[in-house]
Design a protein around this nucleic acid. Structure first.
Length: 425
RNA sequence: AGAGGGAUGGCAGAGUGGUCGAUUGCGUCGGUCUUGAAAACCGAAGACUGUCACAGGUCCGGGGGUUCGAAUCCCUCUCCCUCUACCA
């Protein structure tokens, strides 16, 4: 959630920023927010004054009672009665204004960083750099959904049977390869200074609001009504929320956490032509890195995280490219996002495998996540996260790109974890 | 799941209707002393909101209520502890 004071002080910048996202009526929405905030302040002051007076009366009555002047005390009580009515009305008014203001602020996405390119669609994303080499496959090369059948690595039909579409069952070397990748990613993160966290994979409403999934993406999460809980769409949610309502000591920064969790996404409405095989699932595994950093250092950190992800792809010897997302394609809460895509050679498609973002204070504002400055004031921190990495599409790319006539070559860095070097043959 | 007890500032722990935002101890920070440190002594310090700055307001697990007045009374939810029962 954007800070209302930021909108006041940087109105023009905010309007331009929202326009970059093609957010409709940016100017009037921001003006409306500021107006509501003005009203809020007035209402708050009026209420405070009324409360202050009530307190004063209460103390006076207390003093009179002590002195045994019951008559006078009772007279005062009568005087307070009307004041109480007023107070109640002022309070209701304030609550209403606050509600309106919040509802409006919830709708406003984050202001994009100045380096975010103009544009509306994924085609407008800026390719920052490309790496690795795309293998030349034989004419008989198979897409991964054929390969996993051929070598019995993943079974979608079994998943259908016990759960439903989008919940695959990993078997044998398929399961092991996935586990090896997870372990590899975790170890790499740990080497880079991240503390491993194993969080719950169901979260409450407060956590959903804290990182911005609620109310924006209500329909995209699996919900358990009986207990009013949600299945996590990413480890970002529980891990970032660990620091909700915290004031962090400056010396503890940056906070680096890594977590491996399954992720659950309903993907309502996004099922279409390109979702065969592992390309899009309702449940998938992901290793997520999260950092909490001082505002002045967060873009340095973003780059550090980007480099970390890049190294993983290099070690796996996958062809990749890094995109800087344009204003129209960026997520609601992000100020700047780098997407990583790997080239899946048999499908001849780029697949998104990671998204690394700086949220600046957008999440921290709702999380009330702050640090203390030298002058004792508390200031909102910046939150960042990135996938490092999402498993299914990495699996898809490895299977497709490393296929040979008789089987699939396992990338060398994984041998230690898989205990096998080849699938098939 | 049943019975009972509890939730107060970084931690421990007082406070059961009237200046209590809260006694005290530990821890933290500053100072005196010391070559330096420890000890001792003196002092400072909660969060949020708000203001140019004051002032003012809110916060004693969450929510609601009683009262002129609530940390203190009532209702409700959540969590924790002990005992009993059950179970990966």
């Amino acid at each position: 959630m954007l800070q209302i004071n930021y909108l006041r002080q940087n109105k023009e910048k905010a309007i331009k920023g929202l326009q970059k996202r093609h957010f409709p009526d940016a100017e009037s929405k921001i003006e409306q927010a500021i107006n509501l905030d003005d009203q809020r302040k007035k209402a708050q002051t009026a209420l405070d004054n009324a409360l202050s007076l009530s307190k004063q009366y209460a103390n006076e009555i207390g003093a009179l009672m002590k002195e045994g002047k019951k008559e006078e005390a009772n007279q005062k009580k009568d005087a307070v009665a009307t004041l109480k009515n007023e107070t109640k009305q002022l309070q209701d008014g304030l609550i209403e204004v606050e509600k309106q203001l919040n509802e409006l602020l919830y709708l406003l996405p984050n202001i994009p960083h100045e380096s975010v390119p103009e544009g509306k669609t994924p085609e407008d994303n800026e390719v920052v750099l490309e790496g690795g080499t795309v293998p030349t496959l034989s004419a008989e090369a198979l897409p991964h959904w054929e390969l996993i059948k051929k070598y019995d690595l993943i079974d979608f039909e079994l998943g259908n049977k016990i759960t439903g579409a989008g919940f695959p069952v990993y078997k044998g070397k398929g399961a092991k390869l996935q586990r090896a990748l997870v372990q590899f990613f975790l170890d790499e993160a740990e080497k880079a200074g991240y503390l491993e966290i194993q969080p719950p994979i169901v979260i409450n409403k407060d956590s959903g609001f804290g990182t911005g999934q609620l109310p924006d993406k209500e329909g995209q999460m699996y919900y358990i009504p009986q207990d009013d809980l949600y299945l996590i769409p990413t480890a970002e949610v529980p891990i970032t929320n660990l620091y909700r309502d915290e004031i962090i000591e400056k010396t503890a920064l940056p906070i680096r956490n890594v977590g491996y969790t399954p992720c659950f996404r309903r993907e309502a409405g996004s099922w279409g032509a390109h979702v065969r095989g592992l390309n899009r699932l309702h449940q998938f595994d992901k290793v997520e890195i999260v950092q909490i950093q001082l505002p002045e250092k967060s873009y340095e950190t973003l780059l550090e995280m980007r480099n970390h992800v890049e190294k993983l792809l290099q070690k796996l010897q996958l062809p990749y490219r890094i995109l800087r997302l344009c204003g129209g394609d960026m997520g609601f809460t992000s100020a700047l996002t780098y997407d990583f895509e790997v080239f899946s050679a048999a499908q001849q498609r780029w697949l998104e495998v990671s998204s690394v973002s700086n949220f600046e204070t957008f999440q921290a504002n709702r999380l009330k996540l702050r640090y203390r400055e030298e002058d004792k004031k508390t200031t909102l921190l910046h939150t960042l996260n990135g996938s490092a990495l999402a498993l299914p599409r990495i699996m898809a790319a490895i299977l497709e790109n490393n296929q040979e006539e008789k089987g699939i070559v396992i990338p060398e860095v994984l041998h230690y974890y898989t205990q096998f070097t080849y699938i098939g043959g």
